[in-house]
Every structure is written in structure tokens, then in C-alpha cells.
Design a protein around this nucleic acid. Structure first.
Lengths: 351, 351
DNA sequence: CTGTTAGCGCTTTCAT
DNA sequence: ATGAAAGCGCTAACAG
């Protein structure tokens, strides 16, 4: 037996399709309590469940929001996603996921896919590579399978406006899109302050890829904080690497091969810090004793390990929640900002 | 300007709607290369993107698959999700997420939601509480907002069959549903073997909640492995607790309050092991030296910490991939099995 | 407050 | 191989 349709419900309740619709979908129109009760009863008896696609088609949009992240297995994204999914559920929205692996082509492809689904909006989670946005030609690809076409992010975003969809960013501003900003720069600055106050005097920085705004901001903020305290960092001691555990390992290894070993290393990400610590151990040194290490993000799993990693705690779930707010409240403040908190632990405690 | 419709494409290409549809949607029907080219060109020029909901309505189902997990921030689920999303993308499917927090009511609610979306299928990721399934009455709730109704998991699954949707499980069998099984019991058994071989003689077990099949299987397998080696575990030394970091902490704390301290503690989850190690430290002991600790799952973030945690590596991404296979290939073997690998590290190395 | 009636954009028989 | 036309289930004017 197929699913019950609204028509069947209306029939059984002895009302018109329109009335049944009005009762069951929370329309603004009022319905007499008598009929209302009958419709409700009929719906229950028939186990009526609305046909989403049909509603979406009639209304012009679904109640889906797309979530675009670089890697869904990364604790950073995962926490944001948790906030998004949570808030979405409260708003009666369902979230569909796409992973980009930081590939602008895939990003645009997913955007086209979400648009094809007539998503209410999409959330793009930061750490996008900058400087490649508008310039990238991508072959968009939707479920219907159409001819390859060339589009840019801007065009894709404009296309979203056509279907009354909203695109919001988390952590990385883009054009005039609503955005949940993370105080990367300020927090990195604060972290530098704290580290200097703890007594550290020589530093190195493990930055992410050049094009990553998040990484760049954290590095900049950190160096600025140091500079303010009169500490210069040898450019040789600022080394870039992929934005993950292996990147940290790589960068740290490279750093250790150079002559002077810094007293304290700041990795722009906890994951990178993890890799860095591994590299330090492989070099026969003890992280937290021979070389202090600090990270950024405060990923939960690391809260209990030894030595505790000094890092910056970010309200990532909250950021996800705010993104949904941005999406559902078109008239609210389009720029939300979340800050964070320095977490000092043993990895940077001086003997 | 609104989105281009198929009709506009057909018009511009000078063909019928049907022909345009056949060219653009990969129908089985053939179209002359001449017209085909014209349609393709028109689609490209007009930047045509199919209207998903319309297609879903006409076809009777969307190309969405629902993914149901307990907690999207948990590394365990996160890895599975990564595999699912990956494989789904390759099959041209999009995945929409729901979190249940192990609440059967929410589980059923999401199932109804996915059904309402006319999902092609849904993947329920294990660690469901058993013994409550068929019996739980839940008020399902779909986007259209209907009257509250009472449904059971079985009914919800049956309803899915009505829309030609498939429900598959990961890690926990249910009814006759296709399932990706994880060799929890066997691996726990093996782990016990390895630990005994390493020289451990007295054990304690930090199990999850009673109703969790995954937890139960791991405990059972572990105890069986020990028994086979002639080692009995005092029932007092098998303590249950929530399936997460805090649960491990709780259980370990409880354990430490009892008189005899075991030589080795097996936590059924890495997360619990983490909590346990914290508790051990709080008691002034050193995990890996005073008390050996082993976990299960091999969550990536923990690979680099000290002491390295002995655990069992599970091909979770692969499990996710297999679930999509189960969904897309109705005629394949309905029971897939993934095993894993013991990973011995310092946390259980005897001095 | 309730019912009638067009569509929404696409797929799919059924003819030709 | 191509086209005409009938829905898919629901919403939203538009009339009472």
C-alpha cells in the first residue's frame, strides 16, 4: 500500500483539500475547530505523512539546508556540524552534508546540488582557500545530470538568490554574505600574550597553507601579539604546512632540522600541534619539557591527554547555531562574532 | 530572474519537453544525436539545473539518503559518516543527517522525516539501545506538521518499504534488515588474548550501558577470551557506565573506590578509556604504569598522545561505504562484515 | 471560514 | 526516434 495522500485525508474527513492542507501545514489561515478536529483525526487514522518533495515543489523551496565542510571527520567541523544540526532541528529544517576537501570545484558542485534541491540556504564552513574564489571555473553537476558548465562561486551564490536561498559563511567572510566570524586574530594575539607572560621568549609558528584565511589570521595575530611584547620571530621559524596532523608533523620536522630549537612552538591547529608533538618525540625530545607546544581549537578528545595541550577554546557548536540563525532570520544582524578562551595547560608550562 | 525550467530548455532547443527530459536525465530511451546536441547546448546556455523536488515528485522518490547517528560530534560516528558521505557522493546521492542521542522517540521521528522526504533509504548507525525497540511508542513528527501519532520502529520501517526505501543498519542487526556488522565480539576476544600474552593477569572491564549491544558484545568477547585463558573476572570488576568520556571517568572512579586495583582495565570505547585515564590520574596513579588501560575504536586523534592507547582499530569509513552499497544494491549480500585489528601501544606495556 | 481550481517542474505512458 | 498529454501531491490564489 502506498502512502496516504492529503486528498485521502480530506476525503475521509469530509472536507476539501484546501482545508486539510490548512489544518495540517500550519498555514496562517484559520479553520473551524470542528473541521480541524476531523482532519486531525483522519490524518492520524490514516497515518498521514506529508510528501516533502510535493510540498517543496508547490512552495518553491524545501526545508533543507546544505552544510559544506572540508572534511567531515575533522573534529573542528564536526563540532560546528553538531551545532548546525541541532539548531536546524529546532527550526524544523533538515541538513544535508557535502564535503569539499577544500576543492573549489567540488564546492561549487555541491552548491549547485543544494540549489537543485531547492535548499532554503547553505552554510559554508570556513577554511576555504582564498585567492581562488572568483577565478575558478568548475563543472557543476546536479542530480539530474546535465551538460558540464562553467560557473564561479559568485555566480553560484547569485543563483541561490534566485530561489530565495541564503548562503552564509562560518569563520570566513566572503563578499557581503552573512557570516559568523571567529576572533582568530584577537585570540591568537591573546595566546601570545599569555605565553610571554608564562615566561617564554623564543617562538616558532607552524602555520597552515598560505591561502587559508583562518591560518593566516592566527599567525598574524600571534606574531602581532609577540611583536607588541618586543619579540621578533625569525621568518625562518614560521613554517607552513597542510592544515592537519600530518602538516604539523611535516612542519615541525622541517623546523627541527634547522639549527636553533625554539622554546615554544605555536601550531595554528590542535591537529597540527598533535603532529608537531609526535615529530618532537621522534627527535628524541619531550614536548612540554624540551619544547613547549600550543595549539588552537581545543578539540574535546585532547582534553584528557598528557601533557595537556595549551590551546584556545572556541565555541564551535555555538557558531553552528548562529549560522542557522543567520539563515532563518534575514533581518537580523548579518555579522555575528564568536570569541573564545585561552586554555593554559602543561604543554607550555615552564619547569 | 527565476531558475530556468526544462520547458525553457526544450523551447530553445526546438524540441519537446519529453525529448529534453530524456537527454538531460539519463533515461534509457535514446535520442538522436542531432537533437541531443541541441538540447545539451540549450541547457548549457541557459544554465539549466534540474528542480530536485519536481523530479522527486514525478519519480516517487528523491536521491537522498538519511543518516541517523547518536551524536554527530563523536569520532566514532564521524568516521562512519565520512565513509557514507563519500560513497553517497559517488552514487549521486546526497545525505541528510539526523541525531538521535540514543532516544528511540527521536529515532522514529527522524525516520518519519526521511520518509516524508521520500529518501531512497536510511542508514541507522548502531549503538542503539536494545530491548526497547518494538515497544516504544513515539510521536512521529514530520516537516508538514501533522497530528501526533504513535508508531513503532517496525511500523516505521514497514512504512519505508511502501515508498521503496531501504533501511540498513551499521554495527547492530535489527529484524532482517541488511546490516554492516562489526566483529566486536571476536575482536574483543583477540584483544584479551593479546593482553594476556603481554603478561597481564588481573582485569577489570568498563562496559557501556546495559542495553547497548555494541558494548555488551565487546564485554562478552573480552570475558570469553580471558576465560579461555583461565582468567576469571570478579563481577565486581565489571562496571557499566555511559558510552562516552564521562562514562569512563565515572566507571573508573567507582572501580578505584573498591579495594583491589586491577592490573589492566579494558574500556569498551576509546572515549571511555580517556575518561578512565583521567580518573586514574586523579587518583594519583599513572595510567600505563600503575594501571594498564585498553580501549576500542582507535580514534585518530588519540594516535599521537602519550601514553599511546592500546586499542582495536576499526575500518569505520569502510563500514560507511558498505552501508551505501547495501542501500544501492538490493540484490547483493545483505550482511557485510568488517573486522579490525589489535593495536598494542604503551598504555598496556608492562614495565 | 470553506471550497474550487490552477498550477509547481518533471517523468512517463501512449501514440505517431 | 519524437511528441502530446496525463498525472505526481500539494499550495495558494480566487471565489463564495
Amino acid at each position: 500500500m502506498a502512502q496516504t495522500t492529503l486528498y485521502q485525508v480530506a476525503e475521509r474527513a469530509g472536507v476539501s483539500l484546501a482545508t486539510a492542507s490548512r489544518v495540517l501545514n500550519g498555514s496562517t489561515r484559520q479553520v473551524g475547530s470542528e473541521l480541524q478536529a476531523r482532519v486531525l483525526a483522519a490524518a492520524r487514522e490514516l497515518r498521514y505523512t506529508a510528501n516533502g518533495p510535493a510540498q517543496a515543489m508547490a512552495r518553491g523551496h524545501s526545508n533543507t539546508v546544505g552544510l559544506l565542510v572540508a572534511d567531515i571527520a575533522d573534529p573542528y567541523f564536526t563540532q560546528i556540524a553538531a551545532g548546525v544540526v541541532d539548531a536546524a532541528e529546532q527550526h524544523g529544517l533538515t541538513v544535508t552534508m557535502g564535503t569539499t576537501d577544500r576543492d573549489p570545484v567540488r564546492e561549487i558542485g555541491h552548491l549547485a546540488g543544494f540549489r537543485s534541491q531547492r535548499a532554503r540556504g547553505v552554510i559554508i564552513v570556513g577554511s576555504r582557500l582564498v585567492g581562488v574564489d572568483g577565478a575558478v571555473a568548475a563543472s557543476a553537476d546536479n542530480g539530474a545530470g546535465e551538460a558540464g558548465e562553467h560557473t564561479t562561486l559568485d555566480e553560484e551564490i547569485a543563483a541561490f538568490a534566485d530561489i530565495d536561498g541564503r548562503v552564509v559563511m562560518i569563520s570566513q567572510p566572503f563578499a557581503d554574505l552573512p557570516v559568523v566570524e571567529v576572533a582568530n586574530q584577537e585570540l591568537a594575539h591573546e595566546l601570545a600574550d599569555s605565553l610571554v607572560e608564562q615566561g617564554h621568549t623564543t617562538f616558532a609558528v607552524l602555520g597552515g597553507p598560505e591561502g587559508l584565511a583562518t591560518a593566516r589570521d592566527r599567525v598574524a595575530g600571534f606574531l602581532a601579539g609577540l611583536a607588541e611584547r618586543g619579540i621578533e620571530v625569525d621568518p625562518e621559524h614560521v613554517v607552513a604546512g597542510p592544515f592537519n596532523r600530518d602538516g604539523g608533523h611535516l612542519a615541525m620536522t622541517e623546523l627541527l632540522e634547522r639549527t636553533t630549537t625554539p622554546g615554544c612552538v605555536f601550531a595554528v591547529t590542535d591537529a597540527m600541534a598533535l603532529g608537531a608533538m609526535a615529530a618532537i618525540r621522534e627527535a628524541g625530545l619531550v614536548p612540554g619539557r624540551d619544547i613547549a607546544v600550543a595549539g588552537f581549537d581545543n578539540i574535546p578528545t585532547l582534553a584528557d591527554v598528557q601533557p595537556g595541550l595549551t590551546t584556545v577554546d572556541l565555541p564551535l557548536r555555538e557558531a553552528g547555531r548562529l549560522a542557522i540563525e543567520l539563515l532563518t532570520d534575514p533581518d537580523g544582524e548579518p555579522v555575528r562574532r564568536v570569541s573564545g578562551q585561552i586554555v593554559l595547560r602543561e604543554s607550555t608550562a615552564l619547569p
